[in-house]
Design a protein around this nucleic acid. Sequence first.
DNA 1: ATTAATTCGTAACAATTGTTACATAATTAA
DNA 2: TTAATTATGTAACAATTGTTACGAATTAAT
Lengths: 211, 211
Amino acid sequence: MIREKLNEFYKVVFEKELIDEIVKVGTYKKIKENELLLDIGDNFKHIPLMLTGAIKISRENKNGDEIVLYFLERGDTCTISFGSGLISSKSKVRGVAEKESEVIFIPVSKIEEWMVKYKSWRSFVIESYNIRLNEMLEAIDTLAFMKMDQRLFKYLTDKVKIMRDTILKTTHQEIAIDLNTSRVVVSRLLKQLENEGKIKLYRNKIEVIDF
Amino acid sequence: MIREKLNEFYKVVFEKELIDEIVKVGTYKKIKENELLLDIGDNFKHIPLMLTGAIKISRENKNGDEIVLYFLERGDTCTISFGSGLISSKSKVRGVAEKESEVIFIPVSKIEEWMVKYKSWRSFVIESYNIRLNEMLEAIDTLAFMKMDQRLFKYLTDKVKIMRDTILKTTHQEIAIDLNTSRVVVSRLLKQLENEGKIKLYRNKIEVIDF
DNA sequence: ATTAATTCGTAACAATTGTTACATAATTAA
DNA sequence: TTAATTATGTAACAATTGTTACGAATTAAT
């Protein structure tokens, strides 16, 4: 079962023997919408390989303020500091399923083991890190250079791509939390975007027109 | 010469054989203050191992707006996406020497080669990525959760640590660029910090009192 | 059906940040 | 020395973002 899923989503990358190993030690899991995969401070013994769905990765400070960093998608893995060697490190981010998702969990100990044995795994881990770093850079660009109206529209269009649906089921309050602003600000800017013809507003629902 | 420098700054980490290899293929270089190490878009064939000094890592968007991400220090390396396998990737950040620095440059091709052969190198690369990711998370926290006055003070105290000097030689304009704001805003907030007794202002010079 | 809770809209105002403009002081160049 | 350049201080105002408050519409609960 894991083998089929892996072949469907990762076959271009991994060697036959590596897939055998993944099948042996990996555990397949279905994650329900809004389910918490990992929280800040959890020290994780497994890293997830995404098969289907989408995971929202966010960050929270001590005051409880939150901000969404990026989304994980098919083929992604969340290798944000799995620690190396003996140190099993603690998660710095939160991951919540944005919709029902399928994931294979790999024990952290295997990451380094396989890095020695399999070139494809080595590339995969490094590539994952690079992708993660680029996502972080994009988040930084967004925060540093964009105003709230642009950030909001980017948030909406990003989510449309992730959800593969131009109709987003969400509330202004939820968006406000994800962008670390207030509901009133979101409502105001959404109304503005609607007046510009870029979106249409409904209760619990936003249709993104122009993306 | 490289061997001595390596032993001085990295001996706790690397195996004897690895150090031999670094000595063989690495090139030692002294970087002058304000010298550009790597620019955005450069595709780099070498990664730097920092020995002494400090490198300011920043990001720029298409409009030319800039923002400082973090500083590299002794023992650090800048492995922001060195690419894996065949793809030699382009730099997404800019690195400028904040003061005179010593660096050993390693050909990118060796990174993966040594990851197979040396456990210590494997740990080093992974650790570097993790450190980098954490720096990026800190940058994100700063941008997402702090107001400009706090960001400014953090900037000053971070720089004091890096420069190992409570007197910073800089101008308001320079700070404004690093924080992606305007000179007037920086002057205003600096004056405020001075009134709070946290800093003292001079021409081309800021003394940080409380850090 | 009535009540309660949730969601959204909007006004009014506050706080923060950005911009323009200009004056003064210090430094550098001619 | 004089003139030009650079760095800083500050006022006045604009734009953006955040907060409080409240009403209306919709949905959920009793």
